[in-house]
Amino acid sequence: MYRWDFSPVAANADLLAAGLLNTLKVTGTALVFGVALGLVLALLRLSRQRLASWPAGFVIEVFRTTPPLVQLFWFFFALPLIVGIEMTPFMAAAVTFSIQSAAFFAEVFRAGIVSIERGQWEGARAIGMTHGQTLRRIVLPQAVKRMIPAFMERAIELMKTTTLVATISYADLLFAANEIAQKTFRPLEAFTVAALIYFVVIFTVSLAARQIERRLAVSGESTVH
């Protein structure tokens, strides 16, 4: 009968805490840039100018149709050689996951904007608003409310995807767990604790997202997914 012993893991709690912090750092960075870039990509994609919509579409398709881990390796190992700059694991991760999540956020944005019925556009045009004004004042505010659940879903996905950084030796929570496992020869306890920490953090955000969705549903907002 195996005797569980969490004390070596507890002794390294500082490593775990640092790891968790780094996980949140990468996730947070990718989220912020991903949402911003996603909006840009979505607007480009919706543009009637082929010169804008095609490249945007290309980026979106490539980053949705290739595995994130391949993208990460490419940005960490390949890009520095092409562009000639040093890439730390954090930078590679931030760039990769910003663009990768942007590709998915772009689709959420696009679905949300498209779901606003034409009447809104026509009403705004009839009182003389420009395309940009309509977007900013009429369409986006309504669209954003509908997209919140899908956003939260993608944000949670992002939190899970960023664990991939452990494979390029970025000191996130999973990497820390692996280090501790090797140091203390207690892989069972180390990885179990890491899994539980991930579960608690992500599950909490997940529950919060569901609460928000329920609140939105009550207020009569329809949502896109």
């Binding site: 949670i156 939190m159 899970k160 995807t161 664990t163 991939l164 452990a166 494979t167 999973l174 767990a177 692996n178 990885f191 179990t192 890491a194 899994a195 991930y198 579960f199 992500i202 599950f203 997940s206």
Partner: peptide, 11 residues
């Protein structure tokens, strides 16, 4: 659904 796949694989 609320734990990353990589964590599960390593576990």
């Amino acid at each position: 659904r609320n734990t990353p796949v990589l964590v599960q694989i390593l576990w």
